Simulated scan of single mutants.
Amino acid sequence: MIKNNWTRAEIEEIYNLPFLELVYRAATVHRQYNDPQEVQVSTLLSIKTGGCPEDCSYCSQAARYHTDVKVQKLMPLKEVLAAAERAKDAGSSRFCMGAAWREVRDNRDFDNVLEMVKGVNEMGMEVCCTLGMLTEEQANKLKNAGLYAYNHNVDTSEEHYQDVISTRTYDDRLKTIDNVRKAKISVCSGGIIGLGETDGDRVGMLMTLANMPAHPDSVPINNLVPIAGTPLGDQNPATIWDMVRTIATARILMPKSMVRLSAGRLEMSYEGQAFCFMAGANSIFSGDVLLTTPNPNEKSDKELFQILSIKPREAFKNEKQQPGVEFQMIPSAMEALG
């Protein structure tokens, strides 16, 4: 049953199920609402890198930390559109653009981002942005430019949040997500595990997401990639078992959402990733780099998809499926990954 009023006790009971029982239940829910052999492939590009005034303890792009990331201004429109074309040719159906801003400002850079959104949308790709906080008016401008989705993660539980970030509040994040929803843009919101949180914090994060007025259409589950020079540079990432458990719980709570196996995938074996897909993950990021952190290359993902008989999800599938129309398997698009 899809609902938006989960209690903490209910989520804790699910999260703490015996591991194989949890995976079995999540896999059962996944098959009720999704094609288990279909995975959405997205590409994420940093269009403006470094120099961010925020103090997110995990982030290589915060100006106050001494990392190897070099500050780069907003990329030219032609370069971004060329990157989107390459992503589409490699099999991605969604192109995500990230800028290391605290918030969107009404200036020339934002005007240029709107042109980027228009250009990618015209390619027939789902276009997503993650630009920091934004107002309802700015969200409407992005929507009018053709934006399909906006990413703004809650990161962790409300209780643990202040131990990770002090330069914006949890309510600030929820307000941006609300502005995105009001503009009728697809909400992409998830979190990161491995930030020194407890199991209770993971439950709290998932409860925040699952009890939103509508479940996020995409729920990225990231595993910390420790970056030298950041406060969490010496932190050990979460184990694969923690990732599977978090993904499985997310799938049960939010049956129709795209649960994205995101950062930290480079350190996972094929077997570990397969377990995540079994537990309900049905989306990944493709490409060598996720903003500034390493990611499996396209060749590796193509091999993994072939081993698991997975096919990429087509763009705008939700919009193409009419109510009452029986689900049909789409032809394999594996050659597109080549």
Rank of each mutant, 00 (worst) to 15 (best):
I192C: 10
N236Q: 13
N222G: 12
P226E: 07
P226W: 07
T198Q: 06
G196A: 10
S218H: 13
P213Y: 08
C188N: 05
G204H: 09
N236A: 13
S218M: 06
M205H: 07
S189G: 06
D217P: 01
M207V: 02
E197S: 10
I221W: 08
L224K: 08
A228C: 06
G190P: 02
V203R: 08
G190F: 05
N236K: 14
A228S: 10
L232P: 06
I192F: 04
G191Y: 05
V219M: 04
G204W: 03
D199I: 07
P231S: 06
N236I: 09
L195Y: 07
P216N: 12
L209M: 03
P226Y: 08
D217S: 12
R202W: 08
P220Y: 05
S189C: 15
H215C: 03
G204L: 14
G200A: 09
C188I: 10
S186R: 12
A210T: 07
M205A: 02
V187S: 05
D201T: 13
L195C: 15
Q235C: 10
G194M: 09
M212K: 00
A228D: 04
A228T: 03
T198G: 03
N236L: 15
H215N: 03
L195G: 03
G204Y: 01
P220M: 15
M205L: 15
S218L: 05
H215W: 02
A210H: 04
V187W: 09
L224N: 04
D201F: 02
R202D: 01
G233K: 11
G190C: 12
G200E: 10
R202E: 02
C188A: 09
V203H: 09
L232C: 11
I221H: 11
I193E: 00
A214N: 04
T208W: 00
A228G: 03
P237Y: 13
A210Y: 00
D234G: 14
I193A: 08
I227M: 12
I192H: 06
S218G: 01
G204N: 02
Q235L: 07
C188V: 08
V187H: 04
L224T: 12
P216M: 13
C188D: 04
H215L: 09
L232V: 03
P231A: 02
P226V: 04
R202N: 03
I221V: 15
S189E: 05
L206R: 01
G191S: 13
